[in-house]
Design a protein around this nucleic acid. Structure first.
Lengths: 230, 230
DNA sequence: GCGGGCAGTTGACATTTATCAAGTGAATGC
DNA sequence: GCATTCACTTGATAAATGTCAACTGCCCGC
């Protein structure tokens, strides 16, 4: 049932413009649940019964094939996930597991589709959100196909730096092994990649990253808005 | 101006359910143009002024970074492309060039957004289309990250086989160098990959592919609906 | 505070993939 | 009809990336 997170949810771009009556109807249908760390919330292939909204904590979206597994994205509060599967009534393409203790709101997909049909603002917001998600994945594909692992790491660090405020020093949000998987490499290779960036002015101490030579790193990474801008 | 392709466009999932009045309004605003082969229709970074609909011919969507280039997708008639950029009024993330002589309908993005606001069926169709595109790119990412190039080729061949009717023998639609780029490898490697599939019952003669041992190839490729189903 | 346990690192090595250079073969044009 | 071009192939080699095994260091619990 609704709680103090309602306001934060309401402020999400997806819900911010819709009529209050419709928002309330979604919230009434929704329920909020707490999950411990390392719980598999969703398994790929499952029917998409709920739109999920991460309120607190963090969630890893990952996929598997033939005994292999890769991290596709990390969800941080407050944001929705698996909207595409919900609106298409199609099975999930990714699995989701909590990385830490997490609070999650679940809105039945059925209700989302009903409100979609009634509320033009909501429909518009869903289109925006989907288009943005789509563009995000395209950027990710470009990153994967056009860059080496060292270049991907360099650009990732620049993005994280920006996200953390732009200072020379910042902390990695992700565990390194998850980061490795997200960037499409092994943990061992990530370790070596960090070393490989030392000549370009990157210092690593645990999760603490310091960029001692911004110009050098950018010269190597060559970040590009059509790949890296989020 | 509208022509005999109107019906085919109308039958596209994106337009099939909308009110005729709205469809006509889109068509009136649209124009149709013929392009020679190898023309760059769109350059990534350009503002997205038009929704494009490929009527005949074929179009390659590709991206570049730092002197490198990769093929992202091939568009075949009759279908739309760059819908996401259109609805978000954001710059194109991919470039597009005709691969052969092509006939293309252009609908001003402005009109698409106007009709979207008026026609619930059209809005619903756009959401469906975007969600499908999104899911397509996610599948592609899984293909790239979870499989080796040999496995990607094997699964690509199985998908093409299905698309061509399922017979043991079929023709490749794409040139091999474009296929290589699409699969995320070099031409040289694609050549070797075809050889590498010979033990699994794949024979290649120019563009003609024959799968002499379906079970072996499938055993190696391990196709999976959440990656390969289109 | 001692002993796992575990993420991360390192080194040696294998595999995969890219690069460069040369060759083949089929389609095209004069 | 012959030369040219261009996609594709092949071989030799280099670079990137993955694997395996051992090791380090730190956190956590008892």
């Amino acid at each position: 049932m609704p709680d103090s997170y309602t306001k934060e949810v309401r402020d999400l771009h997806l819900f911010s413009d819709m009529e209050d009556q419709h928002f309330q109807s979604l919230i009434r249908a929704a329920y909020v649940q707490n999950f411990p760390p390392q719980i598999e919330l969703i398994s790929e292939g499952d029917p998409s019964d709920f739109l999920h909204i991460l309120l607190t904590g963090s969630v890893d979206l990952f996929s598997s094939w033939n005994e292999r597994e890769t991290s596709m994205a990390t969800v941080r509060p407050v944001s929705t996930f698996i909207l595409a599967a919900s609106v298409r009534e199609a099975p999930y393409l990714m699995s989701a597991r909590t990385m830490e203790k997490s609070r999650i709101m679940l809105i039945p997909s059925q209700n989302v589709r009903e409100v979609f049909a009634q509320d033009g603002q909501f429909a518009r917001a869903i289109v925006d959100e989907l288009a943005q998600c789509y563009r995000g994945v395209i950027k990710n594909t470009k990153d994967l196909k056009l860059r080496t692992s060292l270049e991907r790491l360099a650009n990732y660090l620049l993005r994280e730096q920006l996200r953390s405020g732009g200072g020379a020093s910042f902390r990695l949000e992700a565990e390194k092994r998850r980061l490795a998987s997200f960037l499409g490499m092994t943990s061992e290779n990530l370790s070596r990649a960090f070393k490989g960036l030392r000549p370009y002015g990157v210092t690593v101490t645990g999760k603490q990253i310091t960029i001692t030579n911004q110009a050098d790193l950018e010269g190597f990474a060559k970040p590009h808005p059509l790949i890296d801008e989020r």
